[in-house]
Amino acid sequence: MSLAIINDLVSNVDWSEINDATLDTLFMLGFSVLFSTIIGIPVGLILFLTSKGRLLQNRFVYMILSFVVNVLRSVPFIILLIVMIPATTMLVGTSLGAKGTIPPLVIGAFPFFARLVENSLKEIDDGIFHMAESCGASTRQIIWHILLPEIMPSLIASITVTAIALVSYTAMAGTVGGGGLGDLAIRYGYQRFQTDVMLITVVLMVVMVQLIQICGDFLVKIMRK
């Protein structure tokens, strides 16, 4: 009986469109997480290493970078989407579609991720640096042999948090022509009052977030020994 109700409820839904939108969202998510990580790790490292009392202490670099990160973090994402249209067009040839949302998604997420990286690095005990330097390690060796392996579990946790934030960002990007599940939800649910489609997109996004969290937690668990 309940199956019949559900069937009834979703009888008008165009599943192929939902399928496409899901793939678009996964595409946006995948690439934005990837690039946020690739940019965020070095930025987080530089923030950490140039801060006071650290290996590459440099007030000037730290202040500039920290300022840029703070500015980017304080711009509301919806504004970033609009402001970045020219830059996005230049970078990927279009500001529309899934492809056109990736640059603003990355710019919106990497500063947040970089701060998470910086904070994980701050958690490392001073004694570890003392040990590494006493062994004659160079800064480059300290980064590769010590810092990155030591923060790996919290790096995975930070990627998880960032990916989840990016799920809702991709939905917001939908409102300005970004495509994906957010776009679908707005077009059907808001503009055409087709609540069923909106409901399905929301459920799909909830499932996505849950899966990301479960995978992230699992990876962190096997890494923390």
Binding site: D125, G127, H130, I146, K225
Partner: peptide
């Protein structure tokens, strides 16, 4: 405090 690497 030994200063061992917990990840290794």
């Amino acid at each position: 405090h030994f200063n061992l690497l917990s990840s290794k």
